[in-house]
Deep mutational scan, measured.
Amino acid sequence: MSIQHFRVALIPFFAAFCLPVFAHPETLVKVKDAEDQLGARVGYIELDLNSGKILESFRPEERFPMMSTFKVLLCGAVLSRVDAGQEQLGRRIHYSQNDLVEYSPVTEKHLTDGMTVRELCSAAITMSDNTAANLLLTTIGGPKELTAFLHNMGDHVTRLDRWEPELNEAIPNDERDTTMPAAMATTLRKLLTGELLTLASRQQLIDWMEADKVAGPLLRSALPAGWFIADKSGAGERGSRGIIAALGPDGKPSRIVVIYTTGSQATMDERNRQIAEIGASLIKHW
């Protein structure tokens, strides 16, 4: 067993022997301040990774656009098919120029040779490549099948209805392509620590998230040296922004954090800054 596999296998073990965790309302004060600064709703939840206990939450059962955070769930569904012998990570998928959609920095470079399922998941999570996500959605049967996968996990809230990039439209009061912070946090925890996926697939999923290259201005910008984070960000229309993450000190994750916002007129930089400040408060009061 590799060191990384050992780390993920012992996530519940280490967490069980940690000192009790206590909620700190100071972080919620910052979440509410972010709402004021952005002029928009902000949803927040913080779960203990081992027990699933909610440590703090704000608007945990209000719907927010998922945006690209759905790509972690998508690759979880792909990995479940791999575990069941219905898919192979090494299978190569070929596609054409007509398949390319807006923001496809990886797939646009491989029109000639195609990409493997493993490479597509890596591109979808680490670079948020939209064509990679659409190609992977095709392998599982489309958005409705991802929703069905989530329902089978016990998540009857999260739903995907459309493809990239239309799913980022974020129309107010439109339930399409949305989740709730509580539902997303619980589902992410199941994917990373539950028995739904094999140990190898859980490790692969967290490795992809740990290698995320496009979430630097968010929670990662607030992390002290030595902290662990595996995350996936999302951005959408109407001032929408979000991030889902597993993080913790001492090089291992111990909490799940989900943050979503929508309806702001603020710039992307300002949305990023507010999420980073929430992260800084979380870490300060850990």
Rank of each mutant, 00 (worst) to 15 (best):
M153Y: 08
S221F: 09
L19W: 15
S233G: 10
A183R: 09
G76C: 06
S281E: 14
I125L: 12
V101S: 10
L28I: 03
H5Q: 12
K284Q: 13
F70T: 06
E62C: 07
G239Y: 02
L136D: 00
D83F: 02
T261K: 03
L223Q: 05
A230W: 03
F13M: 15
T178M: 03
L49G: 05
L10M: 12
S233W: 02
F13N: 03
P60T: 12
A34T: 10
L28N: 07
M115H: 03
M184W: 01
F17A: 10
T69E: 02
T186Q: 14
R202Q: 15
D36I: 14
A15N: 06
F228E: 04
A132L: 00
L19Q: 15
Q86M: 11
I125G: 01
F13A: 14
E195I: 03
F6T: 06
H24D: 13
L135C: 06
T138C: 12
G76K: 00
A266Q: 12
C75W: 00
L218D: 03
A148F: 11
E56M: 08
A170W: 11
M268L: 12
I244F: 03
G263I: 04
G85P: 01
T179A: 03
Q203A: 12
H110P: 03
A133S: 10
V101G: 07
R91S: 07
T262P: 01
Q37R: 13
G236F: 02
T27I: 09
V31I: 11
V258S: 04
A280N: 13
G226Y: 07
Q88G: 10
T131H: 04
Y103D: 05
G39E: 15
S122G: 12
I259V: 13
K53L: 13
A246D: 03
G242N: 03
H156Y: 14
E210A: 10
L135W: 02
L10N: 06
L10K: 05
P25G: 08
R271P: 05
P181C: 08
V31C: 13
K232W: 00
M115W: 02
A215Y: 04
Q37I: 12
L191P: 00
R81D: 05
V29G: 15
R162T: 08
Q203N: 13
W163F: 15
D83T: 05
H156S: 11
A123T: 05
C121G: 05
N272M: 03
R81I: 06
I93N: 03
G141C: 05
M184C: 06
E102A: 13
G242R: 00
A276C: 11
H94Y: 14
E195L: 04
Y260G: 00
F228K: 08
Y103C: 05
G194Q: 12
F22D: 07
T126A: 10
T186H: 14
E61N: 13
R7G: 11
V8F: 15
R255Y: 02
R176L: 08
L205N: 01
Y44A: 02
R91K: 10
T158S: 11
M66T: 06
P181A: 07
G242H: 02
V21H: 05
D231V: 04
A235N: 05
L197A: 04
I206Y: 15
W286N: 03
S254K: 14
